[in-house]
Computed example of a mutant assay.
Amino acid sequence: MTSEQERWAFASQLIDIHGSDIGRFMTKRFYAMLEAGDESGRRFWEDIAERVLALTGPTTGAKRQ
């Protein structure tokens, strides 16, 4: 499995695990990396968040930045 495939699989698993709380979970991870100054970690979670959004679609009224 390629790194690309692994990231898609990881995003899918997070959705299965966290369900409707996925947004809250992703926000916590992203800000934890930001606060720690972990640029690589922040980029990783940003990438995973993009994949989660692609898999789940935006909710009504949500705006992509």
Score class of each variant (00 low, 15 high):
Glu35Ala: 14
Arg43Thr: 10
Ser40Pro: 00
Gln13Arg: 15
Asp47Gln: 14
Ala9Glu: 14
Met33Lys: 14
Arg43Gln: 15
Ala62Arg: 05
Leu14Ser: 04
Ile15Ala: 04
Asp16Asn: 08
Arg51Trp: 01
Pro58Phe: 08
Glu35Asn: 10
Leu14Glu: 07
Arg7Leu: 14
Phe10Lys: 08
Ala9Thr: 11
Leu55Arg: 09
Asp47Pro: 00
Met33Tyr: 06
Arg43Met: 13
Ser20Pro: 02
Ala36Arg: 04
Phe25Thr: 13
Glu46Pro: 00
Asp16Pro: 01
Gln13Cys: 05
Asp38Gln: 07
Thr27Glu: 14
Thr27Arg: 13
Met26Val: 02
Ser3Cys: 00
Ile15Lys: 09
Ala32Arg: 07
Asp38Ile: 10
Gly41Cys: 03
Ala36Gly: 08
Ala54Cys: 09
Ile17Asn: 06
Tyr31Thr: 07
Arg43Tyr: 12
Leu55Phe: 04
Pro58Asp: 07
Ser20Glu: 15
Met1Ser: 12
Ala62Leu: 08
Thr2Tyr: 00
Ala49Tyr: 09
Met33Phe: 03
Met33Leu: 03
Phe44Asp: 08
Arg64Thr: 08
Ser3Phe: 11
Glu46Gln: 13
Lys28Leu: 09
Arg42Phe: 13
Ala32Ser: 15
Ala32Gln: 14
Ser20Val: 12
Glu39Ser: 09
Arg24Thr: 13
Ala9Ser: 11
Glu35Lys: 12
Ile15Thr: 09
Asp21Tyr: 04
Ser20Trp: 00
Ser3Val: 12
Ala11Gly: 05
Met33Arg: 09
Gln13Asn: 10
Asp16Ser: 13
Ala36Val: 00
Glu4His: 11
His18Gln: 14
Gln13Met: 04
Phe10Met: 08
Leu55Gln: 13
Trp8Ser: 05
Ala32Pro: 00
Thr59Tyr: 04
Trp8Met: 10
Phe25Lys: 06
Tyr31Trp: 14
Ile48Pro: 02
Glu50Leu: 08
Trp8Tyr: 09
Phe10Thr: 05
Thr2Phe: 03
Val52Lys: 01
Arg43His: 08
Lys63Pro: 01
Arg29Ala: 13
Leu53Ile: 13
Glu6Tyr: 07
Arg43Phe: 12
Arg43Asn: 11
Gly19Asp: 13
Ser12Cys: 02
Thr27Met: 06
Gly61Trp: 04
Leu53Thr: 14
Pro58Ala: 14
Gly37Thr: 07
Thr60Tyr: 05
Arg29Pro: 02
Ser3Thr: 14
Glu39His: 08
Gly41Glu: 07
Gly23Phe: 02
Ser40Gly: 05
Val52Cys: 02
Arg64Ser: 11
Pro58Leu: 15
Phe44Met: 08
Leu14Met: 12
Glu35Ser: 11
Met1Phe: 06
Glu4Cys: 05
Val52Glu: 08
Gly23Val: 02
His18Val: 02
Ile15Tyr: 06
Ala54Val: 09
Met26Cys: 03
Gly19Ser: 04
Glu39Pro: 01
Glu35Met: 05
Ala36Ile: 01
Phe10Gly: 00
Asp16Gly: 05
Ser20Met: 02
Thr27Asp: 06
Ser40Lys: 11
Leu34Trp: 09
Thr60Arg: 13
Ala9Gly: 03
